[in-house]
Design a protein around this nucleic acid. Structure first.
Length: 806
DNA sequence: TGGATCTTTTTCTAGACAGCATGTC
DNA sequence: CTAGAAAAAGATCCA
């Protein structure tokens, strides 16, 4: 189909597409147009990666906007949100505005309500629905990217429920769902009342195959010799062979060989494989490439001073790299860029993350080493997942073809892999909504935001989900719903009366905070426990069951109890420890806990007995194995947060807890969010803990000790500057405002501009530094190499949370 | 006795959404 | 009721 023949699109679009070199639509795109994407028709497009899904979405959104509407594009990852925003901003020249909304970033300059196209994660959209964002009613088109993720047990239900809510809010909403090729695309289309475009057409050929012994067996039946030399692993042979394959798109011989993306099943394997493959790649590098790679390696070392960083830099200087969630964001960006620039020839990645990162496409080959998933709990990888990874091989317009290779270690496995993955069709996508944890949060939200006011209404709403359209076991959903309703009522989130449902004030708050009700219950329990036990002498016979402690049933809220104690003089609201709060949020289901390793158990049992009385809840009995174990790993997580909030440097933390720099960021970010929520909850249940929670949150946010909390709150002052000002004798914001300018200037190492800025933000009447000289008596710890590295660490941390999505 | 090789036991394990209100050095 | 691989520890063999 010629771009001139598109119905319903803005006038400028055909020319715009031609400028981009697009004259003809790809067959699946044409099919979508024929089915009416540009005319408001609902579409499910189940087509391979890189076959032009984005254009289908753009056609739908632009035609909707041309009709005076407003479009929403839902993505599964924050990183994808900024990627899409950048893509859609090309339309701003035609007067169409684009906005983004994710948890840590919201586009500036005006309301999202003013934007024609909004990009957001599914959770953010859910949250916007819960908080009644007014512009949602103006939507005329919603695009859901990677909609096959409704199959995901963790996050799928959110997408499913959110789509159902959006469609209910606006019955005329055009729904466009983009999916990988799956087994039951028709079923999805049925659920969404959509036309189906189901195709496995690709712009470039993808050959799948299995390597075994000395040969590569392709799905077309051909075999190629691919020799494994002496003691090397098959992956090394594949990578070497790809490097030597130097034909470009038109079959011409070029200087460059192909690059390979290797999927492995654990971080450690990714790092080990990258280390091994570095020696395979090195001999193929030109002098110029080596020089450039040295530069990138240096940048990697600059990102963070950790072992992970060193290992990565060592591999990168030889043209290999690893990629997983333990990396700092700066690491990931450098690796992705260098791979795209074809300087890095091999990336060894863990599966999930890499599958979502579009910049990680291999020129030529994607290889999968051991196909088993980490920790057998979730069974083997699905065909869908494997095909998604295979789809990363070969970049359209750059490569003549792509090749995806599985590695077999026996002849039997060779056959098995062909059967199981190469020739197999992807399995159908199944809704995971009926699981209790998912319903817990979504039922509360559905009632709280008024989508359902009775048990009957709730069930009616749930009828509109994919789950209902897939199940024929009618009783199951109803049973789980009743269980969940009982749970929500018992914990004070909902009131149920004669089938009528109403959220309590607490319930509304929890829904709006986007907390799992179970997390909220844990936090409320913890705060109440503290109110009861604060001020008690240590080591007293701690009651193991809350019932024992509630003999004082006359108090209905934590604060009444606290007040009572305060009056009797044996409570200090400040005696709630930061560690206790970190432990409290670390044990909620919203926080991923650190893994307890063999030696850890003993270590954290010791720590537990030392600091037990700081924790906000009774220690479970050691005989309750699982609960006790959870308690200990929450303590490990809490200690990590405490270290971070005590200005311990990154290198020490990564070593002490066996994590990567990216994991520290992740934990800190989650803790920040949960502590913020806990603060609101404390207000809701009248607890006196709010002040202490706020302080613990700020400490973790800035990574500073207690005495710097006030200073670090001044705009322009972070971990490092706060410490320097403090050492110069400036203790808080007020002292900063009244401080002698030479002292401030000296503490900030003579940076006038910075000092003026800081003073202004602190509220100084006259921040000008003109004519001021640094006070020579102020001792400033000068940047020894060691110090500056620590600077770097904390800076990177801040970077990730604020500018991260760029 | 040393060390090479084989066998058994133990250890370890992917990912990243969300509130609120704005900015590190 | 988890599975599976790698690392560590132990066992065996032979010069």
């Amino acid at each position: 189909m010629d771009v001139a023949d598109l119905p319903g699109v803005p006038d400028w679009l055909p020319d715009h597409l031609r400028d981009d070199g697009i004259e003809q639509l790809y067959p699946p795109q044409a099919e979508a147009v024929e089915s009416g994407v540009t005319e408001g028709q609902n579409i499910v497009a189940a087509i391979p990666t890189a076959s032009g899904k984005t254009l289908v979405a753009e056609l739908a959104m632009l035609s909707a906007v041309a009709r005076g509407g407003k479009a929403l594009y839902i993505v599964p990852l924050r990183a994808l949100a900024s990627e899409k925003q950048a893509e859609f901003e090309q339309f701003e020249q035609y007067g169409h505005s684009v906005g983004v909304s994710t948890g840590n970033y919201e586009s500036d300059g005006g309301w999202l309500g003013d934007k024609d196209i909004v990009v957001a994660t599914s959770e953010k959209v859910d949250s916007l629905v819960r908080n009644d964002a007014p512009w949602l009613e103006d939507l005329t088109c919603v695009v859901s990217d990677e909609v096959h993720l409704v199959d995901d047990g963790q996050r799928g239900p959110t997408l499913e429920v959110t789509l159902a809510k959006l469609r209910r809010l606006n019955p005329d909403l055009q729904t466009v769902a983009l999916s990988a090729t799956i087994g039951n695309a028709g079923e999805l289309a049925g659920w969404l009342d959509a036309e189906l475009v189901d195709s496995d057409w690709r712009p470039i050929e993808l050959q799948k195959g299995v390597h075994y012994g000395q040969a590569l067996h392709l799905e077309d039946g051909s075999q190629h010799r691919l020799a494994v030399q002496n003691s090397e692993k098959p992956t090394a042979a594949i990578v070497r062979d790809t490097l030597q394959d130097d034909h470009d798109e038109d079959g011409e011989v070029t200087e460059e060989g192909g690059s390979t993306l290797v999927f492995v099943n654990s971080r450690r394997n990714a790092e080990a494989a990258a280390g091994r493959l570095a020696s395979t790649v090195r001999p193929h590098l030109s002098a110029d490439e080596k020089a450039q790679l040295e530069g990138i390696a240096a940048e990697i070392r600059d990102v963070s001073d950790t072992e992970t960083s060193d290992d990565l830099a060592d591999a990168v200087k030889d043209g290999a790299a690893f990629h997983h969630a333990g990396l700092a964001r700066g690491h990931r960006e450098l690796v992705e860029q260098a791979f795209q620039d074809r300087l890095v020839k091999v990336v060894c990645a863990t599966p999930t993350l890499a599958a979502g990162v579009n910049t990680l496409a291999a020129r030529r080959r994607a290889g999968l080493a051991p196909l088993r998933r980490v920790g057998g709990r979730d069974g083997p990888l699905s065909v869908l997942e494997v095909h998604q990874m295979m789809g990363r091989a070969g970049r359209p317009g750059l490569d003549p073809y792509g090749e995806a290779v599985l590695v077999a270690s026996s002849h039997d496995e060779l056959d098995e892999l062909f059967e199981r993955y190469v020739w197999a069709d992807p399995e159908p996508v199944r809704s995971k909504l009926a699981a209790e944890p998912a319903l817990r949060t979504h039922i509360l939200a559905t009632v709280s935001s008024g989508f359902a006011r009775s048990r009957k209404g709730l069930l009616e709403f749930l009828e509109q989900t994919l789950y209902a359209s897939q199940t024929d076991e009618s009783g199951r959903l109803e049973r789980v719903v009743d269980d969940v309703l009982t749970y929500l009522e018992r914990n004070g989130f909902l009131e149920v009366e004669a089938g009528e449902l109403d959220a309590t004030s607490l319930g509304h708050t929890v829904s709006r905070l986007y907390l799992d009700p179970m997390s909220a219950a844990e936090i409320v329990d913890g705060l109440e426990y503290w109110a009861r036990h604060a001020g008690e002498p240590d080591g007293s016979d701690e009651p193991d069951t809350p019932e024992d402690a509630t003999a004082d049933g006359a108090f209905s809220t934590a604060s009444e109890l606290a007040e009572e104690r305060e009056e009797s003089g044996d409570i200090d609201p400040d005696d709630i420890s930061a560690l206790g709060l970190y432990h409290l949020v670390s044990r909620t289901p919203d926080m991923y806990q650190l893994y307890l390793r063999s030696g850890d158990r003993e270590e954290y049992e010791m720590a537990l007995y030392e600091r037990e009385d700081e924790l906000l809840g009774p220690t479970p009995s050691e005989f309750e194995d699982e609960r006790f174990e959870d308690w200990l790993s929450a303590l490990k997580t809490a200690r990590l947060l405490e270290d971070w909030a005590s200005e311990v440097d990154e290198e020490t933390i990564t070593e002490r807890y066996g994590v990567g720099p990216g994991d520290i960021r992740g934990k800190v970010e989650t803790a920040q969010w949960l502590l913020g929520a806990a603060e609101s909850l404390a207000g809701e249940v009248d607890s006196d803990a709010a002040r202490a929670i706020s302080e613990a949150r700020i400490r973790v946010e800035h990574g500073v000790r207690e005495e710097l909390v006030d200073l670090a709150g001044v705009r322009g002052v972070g971990r490092k500057r706060a410490r320097r000002l403090f050492e110069a004798g400036i203790g808080d914001r007020a002292e900063l405002r009244d401080a002698a300018k030479p002292v401030v200037l000296a503490a900030l190492r003579g940076r006038r501009k910075t000092a003026e800025n800081v003073l202004e933000n602190a509220g100084h009447r006259d921040p000008s530094m003109e004519g001021v000289e640094p006070d020579p008596d102020v001792e400033v710890s000068e940047a020894s190499p060691r110090d500056s590295e620590e600077d770097e660490d904390s800076d990177v941390g801040e970077d990730q949370s604020s500018l991260g999505d760029f």
